[in-house]
Amino acid sequence: MAGPSVETITSGRCLVARVSGEMDYVTDVVFRPQLKELLSRGDRFIVLDLSGVSFCDSAGLSMLLGAWRQADDSGAVLVLACVPDPLRRILQMTGVDQILRVYETVTDAEAVAD
């Protein structure tokens, strides 16, 4: 299995970041700097495509909230798309889905940016 990664593409007015791998306390040291760098680019609308996330624990949830907070502080909008069912349940159970906007697809999320 490949290690954790964040691959980005620019799509219209959005920056789409495809997050892959496990988001947990072990990969925190990989993901946190990548997300911080991603957010420092100055894009105004960022979609995190989580379709490649195979696992997420509380450290991963903390990373997502930290990224949202950093985006919000800089005046950017960060949303989630393609959230796997297990992670979607965690977002709902913790109430994080009330903070982070979640879209079924990247296309749905991009439509909001226009």
Rank of each mutant, 00 (worst) to 15 (best):
L35M: 07
E37Y: 11
V77R: 15
L50T: 10
L78N: 06
T27I: 02
L35D: 02
V77A: 12
C14Y: 08
L39H: 00
F31N: 00
P33M: 01
T27Y: 05
G3L: 01
L15N: 00
V106W: 06
Q34S: 13
V6H: 10
S58I: 11
M93I: 15
G75C: 09
R41E: 11
R41L: 13
R44L: 06
F55C: 10
D97E: 05
A111D: 14
D57L: 05
D57K: 08
V19T: 00
S5T: 10
R32F: 03
G52P: 10
L39A: 02
D97M: 08
D97L: 09
S5D: 10
G66Y: 09
G52V: 05
S74Q: 13
V106L: 07
A17T: 00
T94L: 04
S11W: 11
V16E: 03
A81Y: 08
T8Q: 11
G95F: 02
F45M: 07
T107A: 15
V47Q: 07
Y25K: 13
S74D: 09
T94K: 03
V30P: 02
G66L: 02
S54G: 14
D114K: 14
S62Q: 10
A113R: 01
L38N: 04
L65P: 04
V77T: 15
G75V: 06
L100K: 07
L15H: 05
M23V: 06
T27K: 04
S40M: 14
L80S: 04
